[in-house]
Amino acid sequence: MSRIDDTRDFLPVRIAVLTVSDTRDATQDRSGDTLVERLTQAGHILAERAILRDERDEIAAQLRAWCADPGIDVVISTGGTGLTGRDVTVEAHRDVYEKEIDAFGTVFTIVSMQKIGTSAVQSRATGGVANGTYLFALPGSPGACKDAWDEILVKQLDYRHKPCNFVEILPRLDEHQRRK
């Protein structure tokens, strides 16, 4: 079972938070605030934060820019993962991914089922990797952000977490680009 290995030092990662919404601004961004609060309490660094409209090309451009920034290790977006016509965050993420972390969405669904039952099927939370950066798309509710952080990301973004975690393989995510 998972555990924290106290013989290892905690390694903070640099995380960018993107809120996707046609209606929210910085004063109403409860989901973004939830993520920032949790990641900083865990000891990580808030590298960047932005709010964008539900526009696929704009979201993908921001994701690409952050993936190209050596000061960002992880991007977490919130909002736009539902089923309505304006929900395009998942498509924007997939436009950027080199590899999808298929099990992230599955594990998020399992966590959500315990909280909201079958309503969990309406979320399309996703995760992937691009240019040596982890990307995660979460639903736009503070509760969903809490669940994803508290049950998945806080553990996988902790270098001390065993039996494995995202941080220990972070330096190898772009090794295919260095072999040339």
Rank of each mutant, 00 (worst) to 15 (best):
D57A: 15
L157D: 00
P163S: 04
I51D: 04
V88W: 05
Q114A: 14
E55M: 14
K180S: 14
N165E: 11
E175W: 11
L39A: 00
A60K: 05
Y97N: 11
I59C: 07
R172A: 15
G117C: 02
N165W: 13
V90I: 10
A42H: 12
R14C: 00
D5S: 08
L153D: 03
Q122R: 13
R3E: 14
T78K: 01
Q62V: 09
E55F: 13
L135Q: 04
T81M: 07
T19M: 01
T118P: 13
R14P: 01
D174S: 12
R30V: 08
E168W: 02
G127Q: 08
E175G: 09
I110R: 07
S21F: 03
P142C: 09
N131K: 05
H93D: 00
I59T: 06
D69K: 01
G117V: 03
H44N: 03
R124N: 10
Q62S: 12
A61C: 09
A148G: 10
A125H: 01
T78Y: 07
T40W: 11
V96K: 05
C145W: 05
W149E: 01
G128M: 07
V96A: 04
R178S: 12
K155G: 14
L153I: 04
H44S: 03
F166G: 04
I72V: 15
E151A: 12
L138W: 08
T109D: 11
L83G: 07
T23D: 10
A47L: 01
G43D: 03
D147Y: 03
G143V: 03
E37M: 12
I4C: 12
A68E: 15
A50T: 11
H176R: 09
C164S: 15
V17T: 12
A120P: 06
E37Y: 11
R53M: 08
D5L: 10
T19L: 04
C164A: 15
D57V: 13
P12Q: 04
P139T: 07
R8E: 11
D69C: 02
R49F: 07
S141Y: 09
D25C: 09
Q122S: 12
T126I: 14
R64S: 13
I45D: 06
E175S: 14
L135K: 03
G82E: 02
Y134K: 05
A92C: 07
D29L: 06
